[in-house]
Design a protein around this nucleic acid. Structure first.
Lengths: 340, 340
DNA sequence: TCAATAAGCTAATCCGTATTAGCTAAGGTG
DNA sequence: CACCTTAGCTAATACGGATTAGCTTATTGA
């Protein structure tokens, strides 16, 4: 059971020092000069012995090992919100591969663990050159600790915590949501309702902000527009809105997609057919309903961009600057929006 | 920018040596004795400084880092065979989390790279304590190299290459497929066709083997049973089989699921309604068709089991033995099989 | 001919932790 | 009082590669 060959083994085989081997194998860009013949001898010996640098040792000595961490506060492969995060992961993997980076998925971050374990788990991320984070809430203390230590990290999703020091790649839900309402207004709608969940994730607030901004611009009565509701209450709301003369309904799309699904079901159950009986828009893309108007969240691009930002941070020489990127959504015309 | 505290810093703060700190923080189960007061002093200092062991250094020194590699020969998050491998990954993540292991996804294994890169990428897996492999083909040379070096690895899917030295967790397609045909025979079917793709993956051959075994047991004419075809040819086959008096069709389910989908479409297009007009079984579970008879591949369990086997190998003290595990499929009664 | 230069290489050290061998001082034994 | 325990701790080194300072030999210049 032969051990993996080290630089020292190559050195012995080629009759040089370990230093020489290291210099040759790592490119030797410095002022140190080595003859071409030595170079060849070392390279040949390395090839013959099947040498592969030990990434752990490399990292310890030089602090680069071409590994990016991926830290999710839930499961990296979620089963319940099936498919929502998946395209982001696809984007992450694609870009990481393109940039020659491996991915380390930190597990043990499930709900069972105590926050203390979370702290430890987050610190573990330091084994990688940098780390991507996803999740609703930011555990401020460990993240602050990582940032303070100059550890490169990028959040996926907008994060304003810690005084804006957290670099992130987010989605411009405000603009995209406003655009949807703008379009409805253009089509003559005045009685619009915006249905959102009780949950207070940043992405929800952003959408609401966009909706309200567009409503104010159009001088609609903002107070009547926003309606918070649970899935079960949606059917009753539809009935009420009919009485109020509502001509358009906008609903947010969350990661579980249950609220938009409830709305679509309720509308169908009430016998209303969009866009004739009611205009319908979803702020996001409901699963299995490509015909619904709204916008598409560039999830794959989100992943790719986050990886690029992270690698930029890792390779940046100067003092690190928190970078904040907001990606535009792609409008989806759909067939559920029509004139009032 | 304060550097992360090291054991040496704790040692200085507590007035002891780095060795003492290491012993205390790592549990010190050996014969070395330390007083309770020193213990407390060190622990307090560690707590105060916010010490976290450097995972890289730990690994370099001890050769365990609680990281399991995951090596896929394509993308870890495949977009084309969407969802087929996903449950396996879910299982891997669950079990890894349960066992306190992180996951390293090795990328750069896409189609663009030359085989030489594959070799390098595979060797890179040595950063982890062990590695899981998926994929149709086994790149024998690098795998042999890893095995030869005593590196723990487990394949997902049956692998007979390298003289059976490759540990794996597979699925007993032979038995599951035979069971499906047995059931058809019990119901009185004598003219059965087995539709499979041209592709020669082990999982395909296994299914065929099971089908043929059951056919022979029932003394059916084995030569007429197996039919290899492309998706496009399926419609024509259906027509032919009607003429031949075929009463039951069995189709294999591959990772893309395109062949079974083609068959289901063709049957519907021909106006045949199973199980009355024709009995239909799929050797696996076609996406979005839970009503079809056949069996369910325990994909999540596959992932979980592979992780367990890998961790067993890593922690095994004695000489490593290639372990081969075959999991049973879960029969799916479905509603597309009936009496002949 | 003697020093200055340059070419080609290596010794030594570091990164942070784990581990082994062994040292010291206090207490006990014959 | 010399001898042995034993408790309590540390020096030294390994792990594998990166890096810096500097050491030999030729070669050149005056």
């Amino acid at each position: 059971m032969a051990r993996a060959p080290r630089q020292a083994d190559i050195a012995a085989a080629a009759g040089v020092s370990q230093t020489t081997v290291s210099l040759i194998l790592s490119g030797n860009t410095d002022g140190v000069r080595l003859s071409e013949s030595t170079r060849q001898r070392v390279l040949k010996a390395a090839e013959k012995l099947g040498y592969v640098p030990d990434p752990v040792a490399t990292r310890l000595a030089s602090s680069r090992n071409h590994m990016l961490g991926v830290y999710t506060f839930a499961s990296a492969f979620p089963t319940d919100v099936d498919g929502f995060y998946y395209p982001i992961l696809v984007g992450i993997e694609e870009e990481a591969a393109a940039l020659g980076q491996d991915l380390v998925l930190f597990t043990g971050t499930g709900g069972l663990e105590a926050p203390a374990d979370d702290k430890l788990a987050i610190r573990r991320t330091r084994i990688a050159d940098g780390c991507l984070f996803f999740g609703r809430q930011v555990p401020e203390e460990p993240i602050d600790w990582l940032l303070g230590g100059g550890f490169p990290l990028v959040y996926i999703g907008r994060r304003d915590e810690l005084g804006g020091r957290i670099p992130f790649v987010g989605v411009d839900y405000v603009a995209a949501s406003a655009a949807v309402v703008d379009r409805l207004v253009e089509l003559g709608h005045r009685e619009i309702r915006y249905l959102r969940s009780e949950d207070d994730a940043p992405s929800s607030s952003d959408r609401e902000e966009g909706v309200l901004a567009a409503a104010e611009k159009a001088e609609l009565d903002a107070r009547r527009i926003v309606v918070r509701a649970e899935d079960a209450e949606v059917a009753a709301l539809i009935e009420r809105w009919r009485g109020e003369g509502v001509t358009a309904v906008v609903v947010e799309e969350t990661d579980t997609g249950s609220l938009s699904a409830a709305l679509l079901d309720a509308v169908a159950a009430a016998g209303l057919r969009p866009p004739d009986d009611l205009s319908l828009a979803v702020l996001g893309q409901p699963k299995d309903h490509p015909e619904v108007s709204g916008f598409e969240v560039p999830r794959r691009e989100l992943g790719r961009r986050a990886v690029r930002l992270l690698v930029d941070q890792i390779t940046a020489s100067g003092p690190r600057i928190a970078e904040h990127v907001l990606l535009d959504c792609i409008p989806v015309a759909g067939s559920t929006i029509g004139p009032a």
